[in-house]
Design a protein around this nucleic acid. Structure first.
Lengths: 235, 235
DNA sequence: TTGACAGGTGTACGCCGTACACCTACCGTA
DNA sequence: TACGGTAGGTGTACGGCGTACACCTGTCAA
């Protein structure tokens, strides 16, 4: 009878419940101590039950990332590109501060999740549509602000990370920008397309990371030099 | 006899040999598949032998990070601050590209290693001595360029990361800047000291992360707006 | 000659992710 | 009303992980 009560009381699992419980657990105990077993215990369930809702731990982490990205406010409506971008980035920062494990988790994955691609895509859209940026400038700006936007490395997602021994058995292409995603993220596709002009592969790295890095670095250095020349001295 | 030959042939372990073997293993197989056991096997030794040279896996990772940081070229001598900083950052980028696991490893640790502190300290030194930057401006610039300098998150090392359940038993202070390190990294100490003026704790977070974030963000946004107004259109 | 000590070994424990077979409660259909 | 499929929770088991702890062995100073 007690068992029956317990059974009745327990809300059934769902992907959403699993994901949110995982986020809560990572928030309070740190990502490195999040395990399938502890998560299951938290949910009052046996570890293997989780696998009916997420394929494996990596997919769980992807889902957790998407929960965090989902907390970023949508763009406000405003005439100017600058305040829109600014507010959105500050909102992203707040989400990441609420979940300090998120940048690590994001950086440790080698593929952007759809939610991240959506976020980045909408950022490009703001630049293009609200600011009238050219495709190329929008591209460079995305590289320059990448670390502000998501709190992590400038080499957003390249395939050289995680050099695996998967070796020659890997059947899929480098997949810098899979064609099926182009429809969902048109702005990103435009950027990738423009950058791939002077380069054999249509997908794949497709942009000159070294150039992008130096572009962003020089933008920063020039800004700093301007401050310095203004005799900038105090807070 | 064969055993004797093998014994003679084997160079004895050393912390350095362990560290470099670990770096090589992470370079080719990825950080996520680096284990004490595999590393031991690579060195022709039993796993526990490693523990005579590194305290545990975390310390191994710290040592690996220091190996990478040690590959960054020292500052060149040049009259101007800008090319010195530029070249050093590009050198750091090269080191990180050689070891793509490094940013992840660095970001996953919550305390900067001495080698990283030394690198950052010398960067501040360049700004102060070669560029005549005020302490405050140098401070802001370090925040603004943090992600370029080390390829990772802007919140360099704050204690809110990795919210552990270590709880109230933790005897040491927040340790934003431990006093014994001040002597070794005078420029960093100066920055931390200046920032702590309007704030009760002398050590500890000691700087307004939100302000720094917005400062860097606005520097970037202003630079971008300037490009846009110049009608910047193509690569 | 001895005895301390640096450094490599072997065993064992508890935790991890997850494959696989199983059970059970529910629901649409006959 | 009976039944078969299916969604979802269970139990067991395996191989890999980090590392505590006791042990052995070769070297070298006294």
């Amino acid at each position: 009878m007690a068992e029956q009560v317990e059974t009745l009381r327990r809300t059934p699992l769902s992907r959403d419940r699993v994901l949110h419980a995982a986020v809560a657990l990572a928030d309070e105990a740190g990502i490195e101590s999040l395990s399938m077993r502890k998560l299951a215990q938290e949910l009052g369930v046996v570890p293997m039950a989780l696998y009916k809702h997420v394929a494996n731990k990596d997919e769980l982490l992807d889902g957790m990332i998407d929960v965090v990205v989902g907390e970023i406010d949508p763009p406000v409506s405003d005439a100017d590109w600058q305040p829109v971008v600014r507010r959105r980035i500050l909102s992203a920062r707040e989400a990441l501060l609420r979940h300090p494990w998120a940048p690590i988790a994001i950086e440790a994955r080698n593929q952007a999740t759809p939610a991240i691609l959506g976020y980045l895509n909408s950022m490009v859209g703001i630049l293009r549509e609200r600011g009238g940026f050219s495709t190329d400038l929008a591209h460079h700006v995305m590289h320059a602000m990448g670390s502000r936007m998501l709190g992590f490395s400038q080499e957003l997602f390249d395939d050289s990370r995680r050099a695996g021994r998967s070796g020659p058995a890997d059947p899929e292409p480098p997949a810098g920008f899979p064609p099926e995603a182009a429809a969902a993220f048109p702005h990103l596709a435009a950027i990738a397309g423009a950058a791939a002009h002077d380069d054999a592969s249509v997908v794949g790295p497709g942009c000159d990371d070294q150039f992008e890095f130096e572009f962003a670095l020089d933008l920063l250095l020039d800004g700093v030099e301007r401050l310095r020349q203004q005799g900038w001295t105090s807070t």
